[in-house]
Design a binder for these strands. Structure first.
Lengths: 233, 233
DNA sequence: ACCTGAACACCGTTCAAGT
DNA sequence: ACCTGAACACCGTTCAAGT
């Protein structure tokens, strides 16, 4: 057919934008390991090699994903000015939990973020905003600096997960596990026994969101105390 | 030569032990990315495929590395019994800093640990020990549970590094960077200016060990406070 | 029982060739 | 200017063949 392809799909041209959008979708739906240049090409109905016309290489794709995700974070937290220093704690708390919601939508994001060799500019922007809250909250520059380190990845809404989020289990099952475990791991066994027997205790087994907020509040409270101590001197 | 190889090196036979020792050395010296089945074979003067007679696959090698590293950690921290509950804080602190020393000797360890899909038994053993200290310190099972989550990877002596440890810089250089940065990142710029001008402030620029201990103490202090509050009820 | 060589199915990426 | 096909240099791993 020498006719111009009237019947064919418009097949909008490739672009960095489209490549990144496809990459995001792929990572969200199939995980970051499923994202290869070849699979990404397939998703776009194109050979893998065509992608190199729009992105330098795979690292550039990952950099782009970080930009997109951090963009979502920055959008979710754009309230910056405190009307009073006292607002520091609740505002910071809200901001970090908002960042966390974005991270939970893109579970691969922490891993990709961690794999960057240069600090992405979007991350700098976010950290600058977080630091701004501390300065407005009347932290000294020095204490604010330490605070940023103390937050670590928690400031972005995630923690290093030492073990995968387990599937939900009925309290009974956990109780049985406790029995089994008690032999090799006496303290874990004992803890599990108590935690699962008290009904009024934190529900069932590890609730990641609860634990995240627990750790976050521990740090926020500690920092506030240090700030107040520093003010008196 | 039909003679038996008297002159050749004894060439002690391969074994899981030897494979792991070579892997450890390779990872320590050249980084974890340089550890491939082929490079590991080369190190041992053998084809990559021979390794499969002694380890199931590459994942098994990484599992083995975790065992070795956590073994070093467990060795470094075998003091367990507290003579009094009050000892909880200093002993826990020492234990975690001892674990950190091992991690600093094997910089790839956090990444490998994080990549395990099952919780390694050696890790469980370590966590059980840490939990034991908390229980001896008269934490309730529930609070001890939350505390373990709050520690996260810090309990093992490392934090998620959002940016690589920069090379040491003279204070002047940092000062210049601050000027440059102030445009795009006003809060970071301001912080840097102050931090680098105060001579009596925390030395120079980010001291990782200092920041780690700062964050650790923040958590330990917070936990102790919660424990004492819980005791009164 | 252990080691090897060739091969397979995947990567990311280069490059000359097509349109 | 953009896309493609063949190819290269790497992975981890399988398997039949050697000793």
């Amino acid at each position: 057919m020498s006719q111009p392809d009237l019947a064919e799909k418009p097949r909008l041209p490739l672009s960095r934008e489209r490549v990144l959008r496809a990459a995001l979708e792929l990572a969200d739906e199939q995980g970051i390991d499923a994202l290869t240049m070849r699979s990404l090409g397939r998703e776009l109905g194109v050979e893998a090699m065509s992608l190199y016309n729009h992105v330098a290489n795979k690292e550039a794709v990952l950099d782009g994903l970080v930009e997109v995700v951090m963009g979502e974070v920055l959008e979710a937290v754009d309230d910056v000015r405190l009307s009073s220093p006292a607002e520091w704690k609740p505002v910071t708390r809200r901001r970090i939990l908002a960042a966390r919601e974005v991270m939970l939508r893109h579970r691969w994001a922490p891993k990709v973020l961690e794999s960057r060799t240069e600090i992405p500019a979007v991350l700098m922007r976010y950290l600058d905003g977080l630091l701004g809250l501390m300065l407005q909250g009347e932290f000294s520059a020095d204490l604010a600096h330490h605070a940023m380190h103390a937050f670590g990845s928690r400031g972005l809404g995630f923690t290093q997960e030492l073990f995968e989020e387990d599937t939900e289990m009925p309290a009974e099952t956990v109780g049985m596990m406790a029995e089994q475990m008690a032999g090799e791991y006496p303290n874990l066994g004992e803890m599990l026994k108590v935690v699962t027997h008290d009904a009024d205790t934190t529900l069932g087994w590890c609730d990641d969101q609860f634990e995240f907020e627990f750790g976050l509040d521990l740090i926020l409270d500690g920092l506030e105390r240090l700030r107040d101590a520093q003010r008196l001197t």
